[in-house]
Amino acid sequence: MQLTVKNLKVSYGNIKALHGIDFSIEAGEILTIIGANGAGKSTTLRAISRMVPAKPGSVLEFEGEDILKYNTDKVVSKLGISHVPEGRRIFGNLTVTENLILACFARKDADQIVKDRKWVFDLFPRLEERKDQLAGTLSGGEQQMLAVGRGYMSARKMMLLDEPSMGLAPLLMLEMFDALKEINKLGTTILLVEQNARLALKFAQRGYVIENGFLVLEGPSNELLNNPDVKKAYLGA
């Protein structure tokens, strides 16, 4: 297992967001966690990238290393886990190119960086057209492309994606997931959390369902897609 999460507990003040969840991902896999707003999806990703503290007793291991030893920036630069956050969080006062350069802040492999940037521009040609534009002037879809491209530039082993479909038109959504497939084909493990359960389950190989801070269901995506409870609660069928 590339990533092992055991008994992950997170609280915001007195409010418990995660009640001790367990899951794991194999290298190269696409895994999704679906659930309603506020169920704990984003919190799970933030705990992995150390943006929120995990409670004592939580176990987070990546390739045998204890994630809890590292700060957010080292989770990205040392462990190789990128995080494309909810709401894109691109730097609107920097140009598209500067956003991509900044993502390589801790990388030393200058040649590979140039290749990676070219690959990102091939994946999202719209970004190349706008490379000298301030990122704040991009459309929502383009900003999401930049956020994913930036994630890809920052770290390669695993990508945590927080609602990449949010606010995208249906066609753009499909384009975005095609691009994510391409990234996965190059060997990046993907952990996706989504409210758009149908889209996420069609994209992923395996899924978990999260409810009020507990993982309540687990299984291959097609099983979950046909599960009557999942259908009723998340697929609107």
Binding site: R89, F91, S154
Partner: peptide
């Protein structure tokens, strides 16, 4: 660049490995 980015969105900057 990192400084400019921090002045825009402080909390997203560590995700760039900064």
């Amino acid at each position: 660049m990192a400084m400019r980015a921090m002045s825009y969105d402080f909390l997203a900057v560590p995700l760039m490995g900064v």
